[in-house]
Design a protein around this nucleic acid. Structure first.
Lengths: 241, 241
DNA sequence: CGTGAGATTGAAGTCCATCAATGGTTGTGG
DNA sequence: CCACAACCATTGATGGACTTCAATCTCACG
């Protein structure tokens, strides 16, 4: 089950959180940052494979990933499902549900994770005397829209190898922004999950990884990846064929 | 060129605009609605084929479609481009650029159109003492995210005929909400544009239209469509194959 | 150490793209 | 107002990219 962890005096707060430069507080003054400390009064532990929320659940909060990795996915009646995003620490999930105040996707942990619960009521209240929070929240929503549109481009007009190359580079950059190595990392998702995200079958993903490795672009052993020739990888989707 | 039309005393305003129940003012009290009248101080006429904004342009406003149809599209360096949305009256375009305050896509008119210019500075100012505007704006952004995610699902896991059927139904519903016939309408976009949006080639779109017509699901002559068997069309993408 | 989920690799098949030729509609300028 | 051009749409034939089906293989975990 999901474990709830109350935030106490001694817990880390927004003002002291290492994710600050990636999360809601981006660009806030020290003064504003201190006001943020009342925003999150609860955190939730989500173990690998557990679900944070499901499509249709009433939305009372959005969630900032504190550590771990989540996936968001939508499912059709006939069982087909599509992963709409992988979410790293500092990213917000649940934004797609604010319109109807009920979640428009499922969110599941790919590894043990912890999220900060950002109650929508608190968010609204605090936004009143913290315009920078308002602005920052809009900015995050807007970024989500433009990222989804890049993904639409990827699914709509790129070939399989271009999609996978773009995926690797995107992941690399996001990990790098979080202080991890940009050239060597562990995939938290299966071939099937990568395939679902990229609109491909798991066998195709596997074959492409093998081909990339053969071409000397990457090394891959199970879920451990090393990017060898970053320029070469980028060329796959940059070449003006 | 784009024609700017100042909003004067006698111009239609938000409080009297027929699009009210679809646009920013949704669900506002009469009192709030009157405050909205200061929000839009300019409208812009965009003729068929003209561009409202381009990717990279600094963003100073978002735009509410008043009449006509727009498309938004993103382009890669190599020239490939993807249509990310078709926008009908009452819908807001430009939301994807708020994150960086510069536009993340191009917006082009498919037919002569007019948009209300919603300056971001005005929006922020007015949001201060009009919380319902704030809420409504968040709601619209959130809907855009969840719509994009439905589109990701469509591109990532549906077959060609399912995509086209879903497209027709979606368009039908949106036209219906605007007071037009849900069963008979004119496509404002070419086969190629439909194909770009759905991740298909124009020949595929054309063939599918012909097949749908042969199956008695629709009638189609150039851009004039009549949906004959709505249940049958929905079955194409609902059947639990 | 054994088991089972996940990953790899091969062979065959399908769906959609590409290439190509023709037909239809719209709009423009003589 | 007509003729022509330009654009858009249709349809057929062929090919290729990715999927599907299937048989191992690998490794993480009890």
């Amino acid at each position: 089950m999901l474990t709830s962890i109350p935030v106490t005096e001694i817990s880390p707060r927004c003002s002291t959180c290492g994710m600050g430069q990636l999360c809601l507080p981006v660009g806030m003054s020290q003064q504003d940052l201190l006001k943020m400390d009342t925003l999150v009064q609860e955190r939730v532990r989500v173990h690998k494979g557990e679900t944070l929320y499901r499509m249709g659940d009433p939305l009372t909060a959005v969630y900032a990933v504190r550590f771990g990795t989540l996936k968001t996915h939508v499912t059709l009646e006939d069982g087909r499902s599509q992963i709409t995003g992988f979410h790293l620490p500092g990213e917000i999930v649940g934004l797609d549900g604010l319109g109807e105040m009920q979640h428009a996707s499922d969110a599941t942990a790919l590894e043990d994770a912890e999220v900060c619960v950002v109650r929508f009521s608190e968010l609204q209240a605090l936004s009143g005397d913290l315009p920078s929070l308002q602005t920052q929240f809009l900015r995050l929503m807007s970024k989500e829209i433009s990222q989804d549109q890049v993904m639409l481009m990827t699914l709509g007009s790129m070939r399989a190898e271009e999609r996978l190359a773009a995926f690797l580079v995107n992941l690399s950059e996001r990990l790098s922004a979080r202080g991890y190595s940009s050239s060597e990392f562990v995939l938290r998702m299966s071939r099937e999950e990568i395939g679902s995200y990229l609109g491909l079958k798991l066998e195709t993903v596997s074959r492409l990884f093998s081909r990339f490795a053969e071409a000397g672009l990457i090394q891959i052993r199970q879920r451990h990846v090393k990017l060898i020739d970053m320029a070469g990888i980028k060329q796959i989707y940059n070449r003006s064929c």
